[in-house]
C-alpha cells in the first residue's frame, strides 16, 4: 500500500506513467467511468480549499466512486480534540483512500503512518502539495508534448512558494531543462532549495529581477503571487508589486509558443486581459488537475 506525501516519493518513470494514464483518461473517459465503483474517497480538509477538494471529489465521482469527508476542522472530530493519528485509523474503517489537507506541516505523514489505506497529501501548510505539481507537469506535457529540453521561468514569490519549489524539484530530474528564476531580492529561492535541489541536480539556472528581460527565452512561465505580507518594508512592496504583474505589454517579446501557468487562485498578478491569449494555460491547468488526480487514485488503489 502506497501513499503520496511528497512529489519526490515518485520516480520519474512513475510520474511519466501517471501522466500517460491521465492522457488516456482524457481520450477515453467512458472506459474509466466505473473503475472505482463501490470505492470511497475520504476528503479530510482541516482548512478550506474549495478548488483542491472539489477537484479530488470530481475525480473520484468521474471514476464511479463516491466521496465522504469534511471541509473544515470545526465540522470534524478534530474540534473535540481527536488526533490526526486516531482520525486516520477511524477513517480507514470507512473509506478506501484519503485525501488530506491540513494547516500543520507533516500531518498527512502522520495520517499515512496510522492509516491502513493510502493517503494523498492535498497540501500541508507551506510544506508540500504534490498533486499541484503533478497538475503542473501534466499541463506542461500536454502543452509542449514533452517535459525535457525547455526553459522554464518561475516568477514572483520564489521564497515561500511551495508550488515553485516542488516544480523545480520535479522538473530538474528531466534532461535539458533550464530555469530562469525571476523575483525581487527579498523573495529569491531559499538556500535549502538552492543547495538541495538546484545545485544537487546540477540543473542550469540563473536569477534575475526582470521579467521583461527574461521573457524572450521562456518556453514556460510559471507565475505566482507576490504578497504584501512577505515584505518587511511597505516601500519595497509598492516599488516591486507591479513589476511582477503580467500584462499584455509584457508579452510583446514572448515566444508565440509560450505557456503561462499559475497554481491559482489569482489575485491581480495576471491581468484578466491575458485570459483570452492562447498562451494562457491556467484554467486548462485546473481541468488537468482533475485528470491527474483520477490517474493517481487509480494508481494508489491499484486499479488497472
Amino acid at each position: 500500500m502506497r501513499s503520496l506525501l511528497d512529489i519526490s516519493d515518485l520516480t520519474v518513470e512513475e510520474i511519466d506513467a501517471l501522466i500517460a494514464k491521465a492522457q488516456d483518461i482524457i481520450e477515453h473517459p467512458d472506459q474509466y467511468a466505473e473503475k472505482c465503483r463501490r470505492k470511497k474517497l475520504a476528503t479530510l480538509f482541516y482548512e478550506p480549499s474549495t478548488r483542491t477538494r472539489l477537484s479530488f471529489e470530481a475525480a473520484m465521482l468521474e471514476l464511479g466512486g463516491s466521496v465522504i469527508g469534511f471541509s473544515e476542522a470545526q465540522s470534524s472530530s478534530a474540534a473535540k480534540g481527536e488526533s490526526v493519528a486516531d482520525t486516520a485509523r477511524v477513517i480507514s474503517c470507512f473509506a478506501d483512500i484519503i485525501a488530506m489537507r491540513h494547516p500543520k506541516e507533516g500531518a498527512p505523514r502522520v495520517a499515512a503512518m496510522n492509516a491502513s489505506i493510502p493517503v494523498i497529501n492535498a497540501g500541508d501548510g507551506g510544506h508540500n502539495h504534490p498533486t499541484q505539481t503533478l497538475t503542473d507537469l501534466l499541463t506542461i506535457k500536454r502543452e509542449k508534448g514533452r517535459l525535457d529540453h525547455m526553459t522554464v521561468g518561475c516568477c514572483g514569490d520564489l521564497k515561500f512558494g511551495r508550488t515553485v519549489h516542488s516544480l523545480l524539484g520535479a522538473m530538474s530530474r528531466y534532461e535539458g531543462v533550464d530555469f530562469v528564476l525571476i523575483s525581487p531580492e527579498e523573495l529569491k529561492v531559499p538556500e535549502h532549495v538552492r543547495s538541495d535541489i538546484l545545485n544537487a541536480s546540477g540543473v542550469k539556472y540563473r536569477e534575475t529581477e526582470s521579467l521583461l528581460e527574461a521573457m524572450p527565452e521562456l518556453d514556460v512561465l510559471y507565475m505566482t503571487r507576490v504578497q504584501r505580507e512577505r515584505f518587511i518594508s511597505e516601500a519595497d512592496y509598492v516599488r516591486l508589486k507591479d513589476t511582477y504583474i503580467l500584462t499584455p505589454d509584457k508579452l510583446e517579446n514572448a515566444k508565440a509558443s509560450l505557456s503561462i501557468l499559475h497554481p491559482l487562485p489569482r489575485v491581480n498578478e495576471i491581468s484578466v486581459a491575458i485570459d483570452a491569449d492562447p498562451r494562457a494555460c491556467y484554467f486548462k491547468q485546473v481541468l488537468n488537475g482533475k485528470f491527474i488526480r483520477m490517474a493517481l487514485i487509480l494508481m494508489l488503489l491499484e486499479v488497472e
Partner: peptide, 13 residues
C-alpha cells in the same frame, strides 16, 4: 523547532 510542524500539536507521536 518548527512551530508549524505537526509534532508541535500532535501528542504521542
Amino acid at each position: 523547532k518548527n512551530p508549524r510542524c505537526i509534532t508541535s500539536t500532535e501528542q504521542e507521536i
